[in-house]
Design a protein around this nucleic acid. Structure first.
Lengths: 142, 142
DNA sequence: AACTACATTATAATTATTCTAAACTATTGA
DNA sequence: TCAATAGTTTAGAATAATTATAATGTAGTT
């Protein structure tokens, strides 16, 4: 609750109206210790668990995309039927646990810096993403 | 046509029956100089252009997944509404041109080897994928 | 040739996501 | 303060990719 003013300011400063729904979503997304990796579905479930009120799915989609556009969220490339988002917007990479379908942050001690030696001519690099897919050692993959 | 026997053998050796449809798809996928990056839709279009006959979409899906399972195709992680596949199954990475939505292979002279210094405990690494998103230098990104 | 297991197919079903258009609300400025 | 307006929310429809279904077809084997 004390964070509400902070979120209001954050939204207003980026030209987003601090509506009730957006503040609630801020609370769920940004009021945590660890970074949060989620799909829209995860988030919607989280909202209806933590908060009493329901927020329309369309609003969740709208808000997540608005937050992404403003740079408050990052979208992560995983080959999947759904999109994954990350509250950690710093430049970092990911493990993807194929057993649990969970994304896990890669910190610096996991991975050497990726160096691009040669780029496509005439293009600029927008992002470099490394995705390390892992699974249980004793589990057979299909 | 001369390749047909080769494809028949390839399929048979991996326990896939060399049906008419699978051979046609092999022809479209593997009878080319360069590696082929495609979505199911690309492939279906390619089939109906190059060949006279139509192959049911369901069969295209089934076949692509069967080929992937047998290791003849790789699925590439791009955050998108559709899945991308690659006939180049060697260990390599990709550029993704956001202007044209095209995947481009990264060869060795583009990228230094990615080294994982520390893995998640109890898990084994199934794959490491680097995706470098690029776009026109003079184009503003939204 | 006939049997059987695997394949193909059209179509229905499912799932994630976006669109729509009407109702609602935050902001602004009189 | 209050009304105008521009941005938001919403339920539900629409769309798009993919998977399931179940009937028909076909390759491989006997």
């Amino acid at each position: 609750m004390t964070k509400n003013l902070e979120f209001t300011e954050k939204l207003r400063s980026s030209g987003l109206r601090p509506t009730k729904q957006r503040l609630k979503i801020c609370e769920v997304l940004f009021n945590r210790e660890k970074t949060f990796h989620f799909t829209i579905n995860d988030l919607a479930k989280n909202i209806s668990e933590k908060l009493k009120e329901k927020i329309s799915l369309a609003t969740v989609y709208n808000t997540v995309h608005a937050f992404k556009k403003k740079g408050y969220l990052k979208e992560i490339s995983i080959n999947s039927d759904k999109s994954y988002f990350d509250t950690n917007i710093t430049n970092h990479h990911h493990f993807f646990d194929e057993d649990t379908n969970q994304l896990i942050d890669c910190d610096d001690n996991h991975l050497d810096n990726v160096k691009i030696k040669k780029n496509i001519t005439g293009k600029k690099i927008n992002s470099i993403e490394v995705l390390i897919k892992v699974a249980s050692d004793n589990q057979n993959q299909n």
